[in-house]
Amino acid sequence: MIRTLYLFASAAPPVFDIAKVIEDAQTRSWDVCLGLTPTAARWLENSLDGLAALTGHPIRSEYKLPGQPDVWPPADIILVAPATFNTMNEWALGLTSKFVVGVMAEGIGKGIPTVTMPCVNAAYVQHPQFERSVETLRGAGVTVLYGEGGFVPNRPGQGRPEGYPWHLALDAAEAVGPR
């Protein structure tokens, strides 16, 4: 059975591995629709056509205009990774000026299983809003892969994008998504 995975990514260095993540998800029988924050879309600008060909769907980073048809099938699950400090806080606070954050916020209300894995440095997580955002999202039913068994922050400037645990995010999507 093919299931639809909305894969939403923010502008953090692991986003450059998104094609491999899409391929991995496809081997797990997911039909992948890729949504990007505007900055992530700018970072991947030269790859967007190839990513659209890989997924078979347009890559989205902006809301559609009123009256335009939805170009994606309905989501069976939403996976948000990498989720930056900004994306996590906007989502938890319900600030939906960005397409992906709007879909994520609405997904909570629709009961769509949702998994997120942040990608933030250890300085950002000291800000009191970050922990509140993690707790708010968990309280809303979102599986947040943060801390032991998920993403563990690096010190500022010492990021290791190659060490971002994408496999944990996909495994969690498998665990909470439809079978």
Rank of each mutant, 00 (worst) to 15 (best):
P113D: 03
A53Q: 15
E106F: 09
G141R: 04
L51N: 10
V134E: 08
L145K: 02
V100Q: 12
R60V: 07
E148K: 06
A11K: 04
P153G: 08
G56S: 08
A175Y: 00
H57G: 05
T37K: 00
D49P: 14
A25I: 13
F16Q: 00
G141Y: 07
F130V: 09
Q158T: 09
S29H: 03
G149N: 09
P38A: 11
P14E: 05
M88C: 15
V152E: 11
E45L: 15
S61C: 10
D24N: 15
A75I: 06
V100S: 01
G150H: 06
L93Y: 07
M88Q: 05
A175M: 12
A12D: 12
T84I: 14
V115R: 08
P38E: 09
S61L: 10
S97Y: 12
N46D: 13
A75H: 04
L170D: 01
V32P: 05
L168Q: 04
H127I: 14
A92E: 07
T55Y: 04
T96E: 05
V176S: 01
T143P: 07
V134N: 02
V100W: 00
A175E: 09
G157Q: 10
Y63I: 11
V120H: 01
N89A: 10
D31S: 15
E162Q: 09
D17W: 04
Q68T: 14
P13T: 02
E135Y: 07
V21T: 14
P73L: 06
E162H: 04
E23I: 15
P13G: 06
T55W: 03
T84N: 07
S29Y: 02
N154G: 00
L51S: 08
L95E: 06
F130N: 06
I108S: 03
T55L: 13
V142Y: 00
G139E: 07
V120A: 04
R138G: 11
F99L: 12
I22S: 10
I22E: 03
Q129A: 13
E135P: 00
G102C: 02
F8M: 12
T55V: 14
A53C: 13
G149M: 12
F85Y: 10
V115N: 12
F8P: 03
P178Q: 02
E131M: 04
A122F: 01
L7Q: 13
I112T: 13
L7A: 10
G67K: 13
F151L: 13
G56Y: 06
T96Y: 08
S47I: 05
V152T: 14
I112G: 05
I108R: 13
I22L: 06
A81F: 07
